[in-house]
Design a protein around this nucleic acid. Structure first.
Lengths: 110, 110
DNA sequence: AAACTTAATCGTAATATTGCAATATTGAAT
DNA sequence: ATTCAATATTGCAATATTACGATTAAGTTT
């Protein structure tokens, strides 16, 4: 099919997978890293830096924003995108839970 | 196109996005959670628990394995899949780096 | 060996994602 | 008001993903 059966999973599972999916593309990882490295994080900035067109980058930014990984404010006729620390913390916590649960398992078969 | 231009990004960016992508599906999040909750983590187990066929689940397991998020050992004619703590730590570290870098930014525009 | 279990693989249809060019929008500057 | 500058959106085409049924492969049990 191609449609993931999201209705069969919990809200939490759907939410988490959306977050990870948003980071599941090299361009979007690169964008996040670039935002961290510099203060000037407008779209045009990225167009110069990456071999992707303006419209493609704009789309990636839109996806990151939809997943709440970045947030943007309007500055004149350009946009400043920044990371959303809350979302990063959420991801971090989830992974921590995974790691802790793994540690606490009595027996391991692998 | 549909093909991500992975050749235009760094190895690290491609590697990280592969990891996140593997977790970017509710079924695979559910599988990871299930593996954590129980010791018996064979495929058939999951087929009973989730509304997906055996072949679909087997494919999801394959993807998680390809991303090194889980690892499996053969046990008779069934397989025991467990989490790979190393990979979890890698993800955790990446997110931590993001969070730290964000904290250290002098100015924030959002 | 034959029947049974269980997981992996293949073929395929349906849907989603990626990327670009072209166009639209929106604010700034003249 | 017009032009300029910068980002967003739209409309494709190409590729990838998801899911299933059917089949295969490999180990167990009779």
């Amino acid at each position: 099919m191609g449609a993931s059966k999201s209705n069969h999973f919990t809200d939490e599972q759907n939410e988490l997978s959306t977050l990870f999916k948003a980071l599941g593309h090299p361009a979007r990882i690169a964008i996040v890293q670039h935002i961290l490295e510099t203060q000037s994080c407008v779209c045009g900035d990225l167009v110069e830096k990456f071999p992707l067109t303006q419209s493609t980058i704009s789309q990636h930014l839109k996806e990151l924003k939809a997943a709440n990984i970045i947030q943007g404010t309007i500055e004149g006729n350009s946009i400043c995108y920044c990371l959303n620390p809350e979302t990063l913390n959420k991801i971090s916590n989830v992974i921590s839970v995974f790691i802790e649960a793994e540690k606490c398992k009595g027996t391991r078969c692998c």
